[in-house]
Nucleic acid binder design. Structure first.
Lengths: 150, 150
DNA sequence: CTTGTTGCAAATTCTTTGCATGACA
DNA sequence: TGTCATGCAAAGAATTTGCAACAAG
């Protein structure tokens, strides 16, 4: 379900960015980088425990929060209100289409939205306008063609 | 801060829509309708209590949730993860630009986004695609022209 | 060494639920 | 009168925080 891909980037830089370089933070950041889509803090914590690299739950939370604050991760909320994080390789933020069934996330071309948001921002007179855009649905794999609406 | 506007619509229809017509539900729906922007369940509950129309917290939650489920209200999450509700007069959902300072919310023309979301939905192969779009910033009143960045 | 981090568990916050009482239809 | 709704308080979930032991620089 989750293909491990080479961490082309050393998380060191990111870790250093958010403070002191510790074993745990490195572990968390690496795990986040290794993750395809979005992950919840709890899920990540569990995964680490299962992988034999137990890191305190608080540390996972603190690291992810710091990472998001530093702009190295995107944060969204799932339907249940849980925070989901995703490592952000570049500096530009992206928007995703997330499958509500399996969690698969696929980046989408958000150009038009960016332009739109920008326009609104300019016309509204508001300052510091930020936007959140989340698309969710059922991916082809999860949505059986037999019309079984679960 | 919150201008009361005439409830042009009787909440009766909305109440009936979500089940039995009770005093409490009417109260909650009316209060929601009377609210300019988004409100949290707790805030609404407090307001009702202050107004002398105490309604159980659970009832407020249940009513708002049902209303949102019935499509009579929009639901967003604030930064802290709290659910905020807003009465939806029409049937088309709207998107808002919310001031992070004073909470003022202004509906924006989301036509382009709808089109975009629709396109993505069709091209992605995902089913049942829904979107969340939130714009936030500092409104002219709250953002001093003197460039004081907080 | 000094200070930032960790980890545990307790504390917070928002939201849901169980259940007996009470109100609608 | 039979349900469904209400309200309270307890239960749940996700996240934060206090604090002593510990590791990084």
């Amino acid at each position: 379900m989750e293909r491990n891909r080479q961490p082309a980037t050393t998380p060191l830089a990111d870790v250093t960015l958010i403070g002191r370089h510790t074993q745990q933070r490195t572990t968390v950041v690496e795990a986040l980088i290794r993750t395809e889509g979005f992950v919840g803090a709890q899920a990540l914590h569990n995964r680490l425990a299962a992988d034999g690299s137990p890191v305190g739950k608080s540390t996972v939370y603190r690291t992810l929060t710091a990472l998001a604050a530093a702009g190295r991760a995107d944060m969204v909320r799932d339907t249940g209100g849980e925070r989901l994080f995703r490592y952000r390789p570049g500096r530009e933020h992206r928007h995703y289409l997330i499958c509500t069934e399996c969690g698969l996330s696929r980046p989408v071309d958000s150009g038009p939205v960016e332009v739109w948001a920008d326009t609104i921002a300019r016309m509204s007179g508001f300052a510091n306008v930020r936007h959140t855009v989340e698309l969710s649905g059922v991916c082809p794999d999860c949505g059986p063609p037999h019309g079984a609406t679960r």
